[in-house]
């Protein structure tokens, strides 16, 4: 089994306004349902939603600027880590993600094992 990370971009910000509207409630339920299905398959290994604001630290002078520095739809809104046989299986598993109904996307990347 290999580990893969899903990077979520765009879509709703469920972590932030989770309880505010019926739509957000529905959205949260959809995510919960998807995550439950991953858990039941035994492939869910972790992950967190991210706060929409942050800081950006850059350069040898460590210049700090306010984030987000990208447009909302390009910003990483959260990540999950799953276990899968290979990238194809990881991609298949990602297709159940509710983010596709929210005009968002998932970047699937394999976690690199560092050689000794």
């Amino acid at each position: 089994m290999e580990k893969f990370i899903y990077l979520f971009r765009g879509g709703e910000n469920h972590a932030y306004n989770a309880m505010e509207s019926e739509k957000a409630q529905k959205n949260m339920q959809a995510w919960m349902g998807w995550m439950q299905s991953l858990q039941q398959k035994g492939v869910l290994a972790g992950g967190e939603p991210l706060h929409p604001t942050g800081k950006h630290v850059q350069g040898s002078k460590k210049v700090v600027t306010d984030g987000p520095y990208a447009e909302a739809k390009e910003m990483v809104g959260g990540y999950l880590i799953v276990q899968a046989k290979d990238i194809n299986e990881a991609v298949e598993l990602s297709k159940g993600c509710p983010i596709f109904e929210e005009e968002g996307n998932v970047e699937v990347r394999q976690i690199q094992k560092m050689e000794m």
Binding site: H14, A15, A18, M28, Q29, W31, M32, M35, Q36, L38, Q39, L44, A45, G46, G47, E48, P49, G78, L80
Partner: peptide, 19 residues
């Protein structure tokens, strides 16, 4: 236990607890 991963992520911690 089996649903531990759901409690360990902020995505699903509160909804799991509610459930």
């Amino acid at each position: 236990h089996e649903f531990a991963p759901l409690l360990k992520s902020e995505y699903s911690l509160v909804p799991s607890m509610n459930e």
